[in-house]
Every structure is written in structure tokens, then in C-alpha cells.
Design a protein around this nucleic acid. Structure first.
Length: 615
DNA sequence: TTAGGGTTAG
């Protein structure tokens, strides 16, 4: 009985019952303490929200001798942990020094771990302390222990240590521990995937959590195709997915832009009667919107009985991505009417919407309302949206002025926005100047040099342009590999830029060459102002043909019937040359081509792009 | 009395 009292909080109905029994004494390790004293200490701790209050509680605790009461100490740790490392250290020191640790059991260990886990040091310390005392953990110990893993310098090492501990204490086959380990390994970067999979394969009794953990690991490492493959295996293994599994799978869907799959999930949720949690609906909205079907996303949103800020933001963002700025603004207003407080992320959405719809006045008003009405301090992203807003609208001076008045240093993204404005609105001198500035800030990013060489090309200064290209070759530029994906008959195909040209399917290779020839014959290079390359640089022109989105489109043209919409998703931004080529392809082959790049949708139809050449 | 997986932007 005494142990029970020690272990529980005096506030739940369960304990109220215990307290009504007169014969129970609070704690034998502190016989002089009154119940009222402990109660007072606990309530003080419960309301402690600052360091000084915590110190006050501490003084009380020491004065009354309560520092040997584990229940009180645990409460103390819980109150102290959110107040930062100093408070946590005091709490940990008290816990470690308490003589009551001799009465210590797994539950208290777990509670202490949970309380101290916001700090990356103490949980492991506590765990090793426990090992020294030879007190065995129970399986609940591991999730608490691993909660802190992400904050440690090497999450992979911590996962491995916990893994070893789980084996040492005989929890290797425990489903809860296995799921926890799969998640811990799967959150430790690419190197963690293999051990995660190993634990996954060793799991005898897989449940939806096991699968969600592993699928989530794949998604976080950018291996979305593997995530979907595993989801299919899950169905073959007759493990019924729940709402969290589906939410995870949907984020794989987003990465791949797999529209058909997202739609299938949408109907599957209905058929399999997966509970429609708010998070699941939110993920569904996001996936449908980002895979290209904004109307289906709206439908999900409209049918939600209950929404949160993420639901609203996902819709606003989706509409903005599709260039439907006015609708996005309407939804934003609807959100305010529904008395949902917009947050910082929601403002990024609505500002983006304004800029895509050319709503300069509205955008400016929203930006001002952030601080004035909602007390949200604009971050660099919000300033970026404003520069974008002015840039798209063609008021380059205003954009420049805004950029210069920012309270923080502009980042490369903002510089590039301004550069795009200069290119589109013919401000070549300014563009060149700003690009030089950008290169100074970010000298190792190859696209920056491409931007500069574009300005030289537009000004027909071929010699200068050639110099840049040579300089680029000499420096070790980092270049993220372009990757595009395409969904066809339920399969998802991925294409890597220039990727193993020789090992490439000869069919695709021939198609790429045929397209290049066909486009040239209708004046593709000469007709565009976006000349990236001189005509004599044939090898470089050749290299451009193997950009991943071109490969994907070539494949789609081969494999789909005439008139089918081609949907491609790219991990980077579409380059100027591909953008121009896509316009031509849409006209020559009479196909609608939808390319989702890193920031928005480009819908190519009849030789024109929906982004109006500004991206 | 303690538990494991998930959703918006950048």
C-alpha cells in the first residue's frame, strides 16, 4: 500500500479512493511529514512556471525533508524540465541523491526518464545509473529512453546502445521495444535504415505500428518508393493499416506526386473504414493537392466535421500552388471567420497565394496584419513572400526596397526571387548586379552561375558567358542530382538526370533523341529567349537533353495513349531550358504536361505554361 | 500508474 501511494499522484480518482483509507501512511522514509505538507509542495510544483518558482519549491522541499520522497522528486523533475538545463540538472541531482532510490522500481525510473528527456544528457545518465543499481527496466522504459535520441549528437549510436540494452535485458522480441527501435533507427539518417529493416524483419508479431514505423523511416530518407512497396507487402501480410499508417503512406505519395495512388487511398479509406482522424484528412488534403487534384483536396476539406489550423493551411497552400490565389485568400478569410487563429505557417500560405494571384494590396495588408492584429513577428520566409509578391507584379524597385529594409540578412532564396523578376521584366543590368551579389553569398551553388550566364546570354555577351562556364568547371561545384518521378498503371518510375545514359532503356534514349530533333525542327532553341547555351556548345546542349523531367516525359509519351495528361514531379526547380522544351512538347505532341517542381505546378498546354514564365 | 508509428511551411 505504501508503495502504491509513493508511486501515484494524489490527484486521480484512483488515489482519492486510497487516500480515504485512514490506515495508510504516506512514506516511511519521511515519517515526520504531514500529508498537508506534501500536498502543499506538490501543488506548488504543479503551478511552478518559472525558475524562481522552482527555486522556491526547492527551498520548501529541502526545508521539509521531502527530498527523500520519490513522488515529490519526480513531480519536481516534471516541473523543472521545461525550464531549461539548469533546473533539470538540479532535479536530476536531487533524484540521483535520494535515499529512496533504494525503493526504486521501473515505473519511477520511467517517469523520471520522461520528465528529464527534454534534456539530451540526463536520460542516458539516469539509465546508466539504473544499470549500476542493477535495476531492470521494463519495456516501457525504452520509448522514454529513445525520446531523447533525436537530440543527441549521434542518434544512430544512441539507437544502437538502446538496442544493445534491449537485448541485454531480454526485450529483443518485445513488440513495443521493436517498434520503438525501428523508429529510432529510421530517424537516424540513411545509415539507420538497414538496422531498422533488420529489426523489422526480425519482428514476429507485426502490427500497424511496426509497419508505420518502418514506412516512416523510408519516407524520411527519401525512399518513398520503398515506403509504398512496404505498404503493399503489409496488405499481402494481412496487417490492417490504421489511420496513422495511411497518413505516413500519404507523405510518400506527396514526395512521388503519385496522383493515382493518392486517389486510390482516398477511396480505400472509405472502403476499409479507416477512422478519419483530423491528421489523416489533413494528410489527404495535402497529398491530393500536391499531386495535382486540388478539387478533390477541397472536397475532403469541405467534408471534414472538424478542422484544425493544419487543415486550413493545407488547403490555402494547395490553392496557392495551383495559382488559385483568390480562392486561397477566400479560404483564409473563412478561417478567420471560423475563429481559427492563423499562425506563422498559414501566413506563408496566404502571402504566397497573393503573390501568385498578383494581389499586391491584399498581400501588403496581410503582411501588416501579422504584427498589428495577430502579434506574429514576420520571419525571413514572410519577407521572401513579399519580395516575391512585388517581383511578380513587376514592381522590381519596390521588391529591392523591401529587401533592403529587411531586419535580417536576405538569404539566397530571396536573391534568386529578385533575379527571376529581373529576367522576366527585362531588368538585365540590375539582374546581373544582384546575381554577382548572390554568388558572393553562395559561391558553391552551380545554379547561381547558370543564372549569371543567362544574363550574359540575354545580353549576347557570349565571351563572358563562356568564361563563367569554364570557371564553373574548374571549381568543385555542388550539384544536387535532379530526379523526376512519374506514375503509370500503378507503378512509379523514377528518373535521374543524365543517369547512366548507357544503361538506359534504349527505347527511352531513342525517344529523347527524337524529341530533340522534332523540337529543333520547329525552331525550339531559336524561338526562345531562355537560351542557356551557345549553339556551338553541342555537348552541353546534349547534356540538357538528359534532364530528368525530359526523360520522364519521353517515357510517358512512349507509354501512354495520345491525349493523356502527363504528370511529372521533380525534386528541384525546372530549369529554363526544360521549361521552354516542355512548352514546345505540349504543342508538338498535343499533350497537356503538368510538372510539379519544388515550389509549384507548371501546367504546359498548347505551348504555354500556367506559371506565365515566372518561377 | 508508465508505451510504440503520422499531417501544414522552410
Amino acid at each position: 500500500m505504501m508503495a502504491l501511494l509513493l508511486l501515484t499522484s494524489p490527484l486521480t480518482p484512483f488515489e482519492m479512493k486510497l487516500e480515504s483509507q485512514d490506515d495508510v501512511r504516506l512514506s516511511s522514509s519521511s515519517p515526520s511529514l504531514s500529508r498537508a505538507g506534501e500536498q502543499r509542495c506538490l501543488s506548488l510544483l504543479l503551478v511552478s512556471s518559472s525558475l524562481s518558482q522552482i527555486l522556491q519549491s526547492l527551498a520548501f522541499l529541502l526545508k521539509s525533508g521531502l527530498q527523500s520522497n520519490l513522488l515529490v522528486l519526480t513531480r519536481f523533475a516534471a516541473a523543472a524540465a521545461p525550464l531549461g538545463p539548469a533546473a533539470t540538472a538540479v532535479a536530476a541531482a536531487l533524484l540521483f541523491s535520494s535515499p529512496s532510490l533504494l525503493f526504486y522500481d521501473s515505473f519511477l525510473l520511467n517517469t523520471a526518464l520522461r520528465c528529464l528527456s527534454p534534456s539530451p544528457f540526463h536520460p542516458l545518465h539516469l539509465f546508466s545509473f539504473m544499470l549500476r543499481l542493477s535495476l531492470p527496466p521494463n519495456h516501457f522504459t525504452f520509448p522514454f529512453l529513445l525520446k531523447s535520441v533525436a537530440a543527441l549528437p549521434s542518434p544512430l549510436v544512441s539507437a544502437a546502445l538502446s538496442h544493445a540494452a534491449s537485448i541485454r535485458f531480454g526485450f529483443a522480441g518485445d513488440p513495443l521495444v521493436q517498434n520503438t527501435l525501428i523508429h529510432a533507427y529510421g530517424s537516424s539518417g540513411d545509415a539507420g535504415l538497414e538496422p531498422a529493416r533488420k529489426v523489422f524483419d526480425e519482428t514476429r508479431k507485426s502490427n500497424p505500428v511496426t509497419f508505420s514505423s518502418m514506412i516512416g523511416g523510408y519516407v524520411r530518407s527519401g525512399r518513398s518508393n520503398d515506403a509504398i512497396t512496404l505498404f503493399r507487402q503489409m496488405q499481402l501480410a494481412c496487417v490492417r493499416p490504421d489511420d496513422v499508417t495511411i497518413t505516413t503512406v500519404l507523405s510518400a505519395c506527396v514526395n512521388l506526386g503519385a496522383l493515382e495512388f493518392a486517389k486510390w487511398i482516398n477511396s480505400y479509406i472509405f472502403r476499409a473504414q479507416i477512422p478519419r482522424s483530423i491528421s489523416l484528412s489533413n494528410a489527404l488534403i495535402d497529398a491530393l493537392a500536391k499531386c495535382g487534384d486540388i478539387d478533390a483536396a477541397m472536397e475532403v476539406f469541405n467534408e471534414m466535421p472538424e478542422r484544425n489550423i493544419i487543415s486550413w493551411t493545407s488547403v490555402i497552400d494547395g490553392l496557392a500552388m495551383h495559382g488559385r490565389g483568390d480562392d486561397a485568400v477566400r479560404v483564409f478569410e473563412g478561417m478567420k471567420l471560423a475563429r481559427v487563429q492563423p499562425d506563422s505557417v498559414a501566413f506563408i500560405g496566404v502571402l504566397k497565394a497573393c503573390s501568385h494571384a498578383g494581389m499586391v494590396t491584399a498581400g501588403r495588408r496581410y503582411f501588416e496584419s501579422m504584427t498589428e492584429e495577430f502579434g506574429i513577428e514576420p520571419r525571413i520566409e514572410h519577407y521572401g513572400c513579399m519580395v516575391d509578391l512585388f517581383s511578380r507584379a513587376g514592381i522590381v524597385e519596390e521588391a529591392m526596397g523591401f529587401l533592403q529594409s529587411m531586419p535580417m540578412k536576405p538569404n539566397p532564396v530571396i536573391w534568386r526571387t529578385l533575379i527571376a523578376a529581373c529576367r522576366v521584366h527585362g531588368r538585365l543590368e540590375l539582374g546581373e548586379k544582384v546575381t554577382h551579389q548572390l554568388i558572393k553569398e553562395d559561391p558553391l551553388y552551380d545554379s547561381n552561375y547558370v543564372l549569371l550566364s543567362n544574363f550574359y546570354a540575354l545580353k549576347r555577351r557570349w565571351k563572358k558567358k563562356w568564361e563563367i562556364r569554364t570557371a564553373m568547371g574548374q571549381q568543385g561545384m555542388r550539384k544536387a542530382p535532379g530526379c523526376s518521378s512519374l506514375e503509370l498503371n500503378g507503378e512509379i518510375y523514377e528518373f535521374i538526370a543524365g543517369g547512366e545514359k548507357l544503361s538506359m532503356n534504349p527505347e527511352i534514349r531513342e525517344m529523347v533523341e527524337e524529341i530533340a530533333k522534332k523540337l529543333k525542327s520547329v525552331g525550339y532553341v531559336a524561338a526562345t529567349k531562355e537560351v542557356l547555351l551557345d549553339l556551338d556548345e553541342e555537348d552541353k546542349e546534349e547534356a540538357l537533353n538528359w534532364h530528368s523531367e525530359k526523360l520522364a516525359v519521353a517515357f510517358a509519351l512512349l507509354k501512354t495513349s495520345p491525349g493523356t495528361i502527363i504528370r511529372v514531379v521533380k525534386n528541384l526547380r525546372v530549369c529554363g531550358d526544360c521549361h521552354s522544351a516542355m512548352k514546345f512538347i505540349s504543342k508538338v505532341y498535343e499533350r497537356e504536361i503538368v510538372v510539379r517542381d519544388r515550389s509549384r505546378f507548371h501546367c504546359f498546354k498548347d505551348g504555354v505554361c500556367s506559371c506565365k514564365d515566372f518561377w
